[in-house]
Design a protein around this nucleic acid. Structure first.
Length: 900
RNA sequence: GCGAGAGUGGUGAAAUUGGUAGACACGCUAGAUUUAGGAUCUAGUGCCGAAAGGCGUGGGGGUUCGAGUCCCCCCUCUCGUACCA
């Protein structure tokens, strides 16, 4: 071996780590501080890893390796989120059991991850489809049920006929299924729901203490959507014969109550039938039918044109006893608040639009705008007007105060009360699928009944045909023998639940199972849970910003309440890696006549021909790119990787060509972890060259041994020939400091840059002392572990710490073997960082005119330094132009002369 | 619309508290070496200029001896969200 050959050294060390269980975590080693660093576990798809996986996984691996070297007991596991639709759809197409494809895919993913050298504890692998795992997913469901947090309901769901399943709102995008893009319609079905709304306030409050990015916390806050206001009761006008009815509305603006000029009920509101007058019956029925046919999308989409129908009924505004008409309109949603609103067109945009269209009165009750032109909606500024009755007046009060006064009055009179409303809705928790966790529930006499814990796990029945039924009945309904069972308690005939749990279920608690993957008495060993929880760092894609993280936090809080876990939040710190886009593309557009058209940022029409250009065919003009030599502006951007665009980078190809260390290093060198970044194959070559340089720094080009520059630094017994010189120690310790700080701050790109600077410098040395190279390899090792291990071994042979024979055999134990994985992390020494001289930049009127070098020991002497600065020719030239009126002296940095 | 984040060379990006803008890398140019190279090495590379020098961190204004960094206004892009009363 003469040159750097990752294909030889990488499998060697991967095998060594596996065979020696180098990264097995010792639960009993409780004296050292713990560090639990977690990756979002992957769904093992048939297409294998994409380059986004190794991004977060490399970051956590660097941190895990670093923490081990600074003495932490590190828990760094991986597993498989393996239930899910693709395996099931493949099963429907081919008849292959999803278990088979899933296991194949897991084997593929495991191989790929091991080929990247991640330091996982492979003895803790979890798999959500393993009955030994989902036994506890089912157990948690039973606990939720016991707590009254799981219930059945008939709810309109997103039914996708093509997929034969119901989808969660988040799986529907633009009225089509996220998977496959099939149309989705509304259909009422019996479903399991989880009462996440019971935890809304705690899920909101406890965000405060989490070390997550502000944007993710904000997204969760928005999703929970807390609003404060009042529920107000409006009596209905009655002719004396009809029964008395009231309409309760929720409003965040009770201060505008005097401006309510009409009311609106959601079309589905149960009161509609009772209040509609005979004359309006037909119109209302027609409107309700149209509204029912609309999907949520049609009702909420960009179509802002408001429609509605008068019911013929009137409500009475409780503050001024005015009769106001009651309408139905689909801009009011049954699922939010009370499903009814008081409309204040003067101070709500939607109400204003609606009032304009149907010629309803608009009354100003807050001064500050012109309600004849648009609604004045500011909820902080403004003074109330036209808002008084015999008992109470909020006139002349600022809006926030008015809100308090009127709410108190309503409460006193029993007309309304302070109220809080959340956007968050209960979690639709069942799917009409085969490949998911069965519910541990039977139906006896038509009622649901949980199965006893000792019956778990409830496993899936074997099926040959995974096709859902056309009626929406889940495929499990076809397993007659499985479905028809008996109640173990009473012996009565019973029917099993045929829905299965959604994919989120298994991922809601997997981080707990890693702690004690074989524990039989519960989901997690309580003693170990206390040691390891919470997760210190959780890294994954931002696509899980809301749902997965909210669901997992919800389950965790329930488990906390029943004493299963000891922390109220699972993930102390969260980092979201940014997406990796495809390579930068230059695109020009031609019309039908073959003429190039300038690019319009808002998107080009489909009929135009897309022409892909090479980088050499374009040039920069202003802040845009044009076709070279022309004025034709081209589109220059990176796109999300997708099969259809053909810009997908396969990590296997990169590993084959450049090695795992190069892939790891490149993904970290691209830019900050959390940022969106475009891929560049040339960038990979760049870090690959760096790794080759590191190899040549130590290894001889012709033989299998270290080079002369390194060998020269030690005697034949391995002892050092000469001490490293000051300059060598200085750059080494600078690098140690920079890399250490940067790892701790997750600035992996600049850490790598520091390693490159060291290497470039060290390449110039004729003698490369082992005492300098060894610490360098240790700080390189979290980033490029295979290369570092290999070179560490070579240096060990040189200094007689590792015998050349031992290098060929395996079987040492993981704490004392040849690996550097548990070597102590080098510490930098402050005194070695000091330079002999300091450089000052010298400015005249804020412009840099020259530099001076001064001896370090005199660098803080203002007079001495200023004198030296004045005598610098490039500076004095500018000082002569006027009179120095001020001298700024910033120690060790800069001098500024102000000249007039 | 609303909310959040971001705009720095040809490209990815650096710049700890307001103190030499562009580290490191890609690309490019020239040279060396090589049968050859997508290898390696040396030098150069923000823009204009022969140089002195001038101009430069999306645009405009401000604070300061000094602003990529702080303040105000505007523009653009990315992500999230969407009639939430």
């Amino acid at each position: 071996m003469s040159e750097y050959r990752p294909a030889e050294i990488e499998p060697k060390w991967q095998q060594y780590w596996l065979e020696n269980k180098t990264f097995r975590t010792d639960d009993n080693d409780r004296d050292r501080p713990k560090y639990y660093v977690l990756d979002m576990f992957p769904y093992p798809s048939s297409s294998g890893l994409h380059v986004g996986h190794p991004e977060g996984y490399t970051a956590t691996d660097i941190l895990a390796r670093h923490k081990r070297m600074i003495g932490y007991n590190v828990l760094h596991p991986i597993g498989w989120d393996a239930f899910g639709l693709p395996a099931e759809q493949y099963a429907i197409k081919t008849g292959t059991h999803p278990r088979k494809t899933t296991n194949q895919n897991i084997d593929g993913f495991r191989r790929q991850l091991q080929a990247l050298g991640f330091s996982y504890d492979w003895d803790r692998e979890v798999n959500t489809t393993d009955p030994a795992y989902f036994r506890w997913t089912q157990w948690i469901f039973l606990k939720l049920y016991e707590q009254g947090l799981a219930y059945e309901a008939s709810v309109p769901v997103n039914w996708c006929p093509e997929l034969g399943t119901v989808l969660a709102n988040e799986e529907v995008i633009d009225g089509k299924s996220e998977v496959g893009g099939f149309p989705v319609e509304r259909k009422p079905m019996r479903q399991w729901m989880l009462k996440i709304t019971a935890y809304a306030e705690r899920l909101l409050q406890d965000l405060e203490e989490l070390d997550w990015s502000e944007s993710i916390k904000e997204m969760q806050r928005n999703w929970i959507g807390k609003s404060e206001g009042a529920n107000v009761v409006f009596p209905m006008k009655t002719d004396g014969t009809a029964p008395e009815e009231t309409i309760e509305v929720f409003t965040t603006r009770p201060d505008t109550l005097f401006g309510a000029t009409y009311m609106v009920l959601a079309p589905e509101h149960p009161l509609v039938d009772r209040v509609t007058t005979d004359a309006q019956k037909q119109a209302v029925a027609n409107y309700r039918e149209t509204a029912a046919r609309k999907t949520d999308l049609d009702r909420t989409d960009l179509n802002k044109d408001k429609t509605g129908v008068f019911t013929g009924a009137y409500g009475i505004n409780p503050v001024n006893n005015e009769e106001i008409p009651v309408w139905i309109a689909d801009y009011v949603m049954m699922s939010y608040g009370t499903g009814a609103i008081m409309a204040v067109p003067g101070h709500d945009e939607r109400d204003w639009e609606f009032a304009r269209k149907y010629e309803l009165p608009i009354v100003e009750v807050v001064k500050g705008g012109d309600v004849t032109k648009e609604a004045y909606v500011d909820s902080n500024e403004g003074i109330c007007v036209n808002s008084a009755n015999n008992e109470v007046s909020i006139n002349d009060l600022p809006v926030p105060e008015a809100r308090k006064v009127i709410t108190e009055w309503l409460e006193q009179k029993g007309l309304g009360k302070y109220a809080v409303t959340y956007k968050l809705r209960d979690w639709l928790f069942s799917r009409q699928r085969y490949w998911g966790e069965p519910f541990p529930v039977i139906h006896v006499d038509g009622k649901p009944k949980p199965l006893p814990e000792d019956h778990l796990p409830i496993t899936l029945p074997e099926l040959d045909d995974f096709e859902p039924t056309k009626t929406g009945e889940p495929p499990l309904a076809k397993a007659g023998e499985w479905v028809n069972t008996t109640d173990p308690e009473t012996g009565k005939p019973a029917i099993r639940e045929t829905n299965t749990m959604p994919q989120w279920a298994g991922s809601c608690w997997y981080y707990l199972r890693y702690i004690s993957p074989d524990y039989e008495q519960g989901p997690v060993d309580p003693e170990k849970e206390k040691y390891w929880m919470p997760v210190d760092l959780y890294v994954g894609g931002a696509e899980h910003a809301v749902l997965h993280l909210l669901y997992a936090r919800f389950w965790h809080k329930v488990l906390f309440d029943i004493g299963v876990v000891s922390t109220k939040e699972p993930f102390k710190r969260l980092v979201n890696q940014g997406m990796i886009l495809g390579e930068l593309e230059f695109t020009a557009y031609k019309d039908a006549d073959g003429r190039y058209l300038p690019v319009d940022r808002n998107g080009m029409s489909e009929e135009l021909e897309r022409v892909k250009l090479e980088e050499k065919d374009v040039e920069k003009r202003g802040d845009r790119f044009v076709i070279k030599g022309t004025d034709t502006v081209v589109d220059a951007r990176s796109f999300k990787m997708s099969k259809s665009r053909g810009n997908v980078i396969n990590p296997d190809d990169v590993v084959e060509k450049y090695g795992a260390d190069a892939l790891r290093l490149y993904e970290m060198f691209m830019g900050p972890l959390e940022q969106v970044k475009p891929w560049s194959m040339q960038g990979v070559e760049g870090v690959y060259r760096f790794l080759k340089r590191v190899w040549r720094l130590i290894m001889d080009q012709e033989s299998d041994t270290v080079n002369q520059a390194v060998a020269r630094s030690v005697n034949s017994d391995g002892s050092p020939v000469v001490e490293p010189d000051r300059a060598q120690l200085k750059i080494l310790h600078e690098t140690i400091k920079k890399v250490t700080d940067d790892i701790e701050g997750h600035r992996f790109n600049t850490a790598i840059s520091a390693l490159m600077i060291f290497t470039n410098e060290a390449m110039k040395w004729d003698v490369r002392p082992v005492e300098v190279l060894k610490p360098f390899l240790l700080i390189l090792s979290p980033f490029a572990p295979h290369l570092a291990e290999e070179l560490w071994e070579k240096l060990g042979v040189l200094t007689n710490e590792v015998s050349p024979d031992a290098a060929e055999t395996e079987g040492t134990t993981h704490r004392s073997g040849r690996t550097l994985a548990y070597e102590p992390w080098p510490e930098y020494r402050e005194e070695l960082l000091q330079a002999d001289s300091k450089t000052y930049a010298v400015q005249v009127n804020g412009k840099v005119r020259g530099q001076i070098e001064v001896p370090s020991e005199r660098a803080a002497e203002k007079d001495f330094v200023l004198d030296a600065a004045r005598n610098e020719p490039a500076v004095s030239r500018h000082l002569d132009k006027g009179r120095v009126v001020k001298e700024i002296f910033v120690p060790n940095r800069v001098i500024n002369f102000v000249v007039k």
